[in-house]
Write a protein that binds this DNA or RNA. Structure first.
Length: 413
RNA sequence: CGGGGAUUGGCGCAGUGGUAGCGCGCCGCGUUCGGGACGCGGAGGUCGCCAGUUCAAAUCUGGCAUCCCCGACCA
């Protein structure tokens, strides 16, 4: 992609009203545009990052055995009345059709749709366990959207649901998904900052578990156990008497966290109201048990920016950067085009800064946009037969001979 | 939903009663060319909306809307 054609511009300044760091950097870098409170457009750069996050999550969900589906965002009120959540959920977007006067909701989550659906398809004990998931835009009527992309009224989420014939099986699956989630956040580049967090389990199980990324921008207070790298949500810390439930450590560190994922044993909460039972070996009907596992895809994007940036801009983990290589041409357009062609022919994603801008503008924009690997070609370097490579995260560039560039880059990707 | 702040060219801002200006960006010409270069010349605004006060309102008054922040809320 040539930067001169990219559908976004960087911004030097941002309104003092925009206080959230992820909001500032994503707008200035040309990743997103705000339409209304908690409602954003993803520009090409932002969408590329979003898709990369999505693909990592999808890959791990498929490996875990989930089958991808896509349920409607537009949902009839009846399903929600069935579970009572039509009246209970105060952040449910509800509306009435102008023509038919029928009531609908914009889906904030999909238990109400999936339960009756699964009931149509799998009812024999032989069909269990199974799991399906989707990656979809969700809607919640937040009373106060805030923190840029971290709490929106419309957001992208992965929701994964598992179905079981016994509690033992659900428990086993739940454990497995915990490990899957650890791997997901590692691959997304925020593993070190993201903690498996004990949280309230509602009335159905002792705990649910959240994945909390530590950042001052977070809205939850958590207590981190450094001995075993787990955390406890403030909502249950008193109940646990300030002791790590895993290792008994009493020396916990208070932090702010943003909930990027959660896993929850729903048991029969959403299967019973829809009469979802399976037929067991003995021919008897028994309740289907359910687990749900969410990851806020767009929230992860914001969390990464919060956690990984410096005063000059974003520092993407290479797995989610919008492009693999940012190629800057400083008075050396022919050479840049040549390298651009070589790299793209190898399937490497390159953003070529071919704009007629000064070196300063290009270098500053590259810092702001934050692509992990930068390649700078210039007449100066060219005279020495060298090309410059710099990781966004490091200060020192390295210089390699022109003919070894491709090899060097491949090694660093 | 309670409290506070804000709203003026695409973006960031100034402008306390006399009919709107600066920086960035944008267009043209020229000079520059490794950390947000410079000169000259341009285009672009019903000052969030609706009332009211006044000879006269971006500016004063009232209402509304929207955005941001704090709090409450967030299976």
């Amino acid at each position: 992609m040539k930067q001169s054609e990219l559908f976004s511009k960087t911004q030097k300044e941002i309104s003092k009203e925009t206080q959230s760091l992820n909001h500032q950097l994503l707008v200035r870098g040309g990743y997103i545009d705000q339409l209304a409170a908690g409602i954003y457009t993803y520009l090409p750069l932002g969408l590329k990052v979003l898709k990369k996050i999505e693909n990592i999550v999808r890959d791990e969900m498929v490996k875990a055995g989930g089958q991808e589906i896509l349920m409607p965002a537009l949902q009839p009120a009846e399903n929600w009345k069935e579970t009572g959540r039509w009246d209970l959920m105060d952040d449910l977007f509800r509306f009435t059709s102008f023509y038919t006067k029928k009531e609908f909701a914009l889906g904030p989550t999909h238990e109400e749709i999936l339960s009756p659906l699964a009931k149509k398809i799998f009812t024999s004990y032989k069909d269990f366990p199974f799991a399906v998931f989707q990656i979809q835009t969700k809607f919640r009527d937040e009373k106060r959207a805030k923190s840029g992309i971290l709490r929106g009224r419309e957001f992208l989420m992965k929701d994964y649901y598992s179905f079981h014939v016994s509690e033992e099986d659900l428990d086993k699956y739940y454990e497995k998904m915990g490990k899957v989630y650890d791997r997901v956040f590692d691959r997304l580049g925020i593993g070190k900052k993201t903690y498996y967090t004990y949280a309230s389990g509602g009335s159905f199980s002792k705990f649910s578990h959240e994945y909390q990324t530590v950042t001052p921008a977070g809205e939850d207070t958590i207590y981190v156990c450094d001995k075993c790298s787990v955390a406890i949500n403030k909502e249950i810390i008193k109940e646990l008497k300030n002791v790590c439930p895993k290792c008994g450590n009493k020396d916990l560190r208070q932090e702010k966290g943003i909930e990027v994922g959660n896993i929850f044993k729903l048991k029969d909460k959403f299967t019973k109201p829809f009469g979802y039972y399976f037929i067991d070996k003995d021919g008897k009907e028994k309740p289907v048990l359910m687990g749900c596992y969410g990851i806020g895809i767009s929230r992860v994007l914001g969390a990464i920016v919060e956690v990984l940036s410096d005063k000059n801009g974003i520092i993407w983990p290479k797995e989610v950067a919008p492009f693999q290589v940012h190629l800057l041409s400083l008075n050396s357009d022919r050479q840049a085009l040549d390298i651009y062609k070589k790299l793209t022919d190898l399937g490497i994603e390159v953003l070529l800064d071919d704009r007629e801008e000064s070196a300063g503008v290009k270098l500053n924009d590259a810092d702001l946009i934050g692509i992990s690997l930068r390649v700078v070609v210039s007449d100066k370097n060219e005279a020495k037969g060298k090309v410059e490579i710099k990781k966004r995260a490091s200060l020192k560039p390295i210089f390699v001979a022109k003919n070894t560039l491709v090899k060097a880059i491949k090694k660093m990707l």
